[in-house]
Write a protein that binds this DNA or RNA. Structure first.
Lengths: 241, 241
DNA sequence: TGTTTTTCTTGATCCAAATCAAGGGTTTGA
DNA sequence: TCAAACCCTTGATTTGGATCAAGAAAAACA
């Protein structure tokens, strides 16, 4: 899809505000933005997202997809859920690593080819720093998931996910229950059972809205990285001191 | 510990050959190398490796340690095993993320403070690229572990780990069985039972040396990223086409 | 060299979550 | 507006790996 001039102007204004372009201005980014590509994917579409054919930097403009890996048996793990403004960079993957992008909704992706990204990095040190920042956050969040997936029980996983949503997204479960379950490496049945355990403790999920009897029921499930975005972080009410 | 001049010369020659300093020369790196610090840790020592007190870039000169996360119950996950020439960069962690370095052997670490690394990145684009490369590989390897840990059975995990060792390290299990087990997110007992299953299939582990009846017994457990370093990769004998 | 300490193996038992199964809700779209 | 498709819940059953326990083997050490 070739974007029209009018669209382009709008897209550039949108892009400039993304964290990956922090502390860079429009003039600096002009050459990079000129290489912008747009592509649409539709719901339930599954695309191999390897670095061979997709050595790009993708930005989710609109829609929702998950980055997954499926094994011979058909079991899948969700490596990342990519929401609006989310990024994926197959350009940084090994040429032999095969992941799939599994589109949950109709989705519009922006992308820049690897060479254009490399050129922008060479010209603007700040952009290199932003890329480093992006990768460091990816490492961090993969380490955090490893921890959650391996050490926590079903109930703790769901509790942890809800604190996440409580703090970041105004008390709403952002995705469907089964998508969330698969992100947490569990079956929808187990997710459902964990929720009904939490319900006994005063955590009610009412049509994706989280409702709490007292307000602190989820604090037990919080971790310090997530917690640092919480209004009560390091106050006497918070478990993290 | 303050390194002597004679040592320094030797250390610099050692450092220059590490992947993180690829395509950089001694003159370029002089200012960074001048900030080199050395620190010794002894066996069984456990040190918090957060970005608050350890906002550095560490290089394992000699010894062995694991980067772990321990929860309230005392259960631990191994995020990374850091062997000689291995690197860890708490400078890239969130200030609220707490991991521990758990020293398996007496270990000597080199490190550079964050500011010195930042300065070197600003001065030498190639060094920024190397840091990006390092982080990209960390992301990749965390994604691969997530896959292995979540999707594979105990037997498959051990099989996978042995292929790894077969291909990279001349048919030897590099670490003790229990360290390997914890890296694979399983108990030593399960590791042992998985090994005896594999033994039935012709995979014998004789004093950490891997011996195979036919030679291809482990190919079932191989993945394409690991496989790309195998001599038989993409030949008719290889399962990856 | 023999003794102590640590690591590894094997067996018995247990448990959390997966799987299987079926009914109830909710969304989609003809 | 109603049926089909999909998602969610609840119950019964299974199961892979954890845990507990105790002995065997190997490594460390004096």
């Amino acid at each position: 899809m070739i974007p029209t001039k009018k669209h382009l102007e709008r897209y550039h204004n949108y892009l400039i505000n993304l964290p990956i372009f922090n502390n860079l201005n429009k003039e600096d980014l002009k050459p990079l933005f000129d290489t912008l590509q747009v592509r649409q994917f539709h719901k339930s579409e599954v695309v191999a997202f390897n670095s061979k054919e997709h050595s790009n930097l993708y930005i989710n403009f609109d829609g929702l997809f998950k980055l997954t890996k499926i094994d011979e048996r058909g079991d899948e793990i969700v490596l990342k859920i990519v929401d609006r403004k989310g990024m994926v960079s197959p350009m940084h993957f090994s040429p032999h690593y095969n992941v799939a992008a599994d589109f949950v909704k109709n989705t519009t992706l922006f992308y820049f080819p690897q060479e254009a990204v490399a050129k922008a990095m060479a010209l603007h040190h700040q952009f290199s720093l932003n890329i480093v920042q992006f990768l460091a956050e990816s490492v961090q969040s993969l380490m955090l998931s490893a921890e959650v997936l391996q050490l926590k029980t079903a109930k703790e996983k769901v509790g942890w996910y809800l604190v996440h949503s409580k703090i970041n997204a105004t008390f709403t479960l952002p995705y469907s229950k089964s998508l969330t379950a698969s992100y947490l490496g569990m079956q929808p049945e187990s997710f459902s059972r964990a929720l009904s355990e939490l319900r006994k403790d005063g955590v009610i999920l009412d049509n994706k809205k989280i409702r709490l009897d007292n307000g602190d029921e989820l604090c037990t499930y919080c971790d310090p990285v997530t917690g640092s975005d919480c209004a009560f972080f390091k106050t006497p009410d918070c478990i993290h001191d």
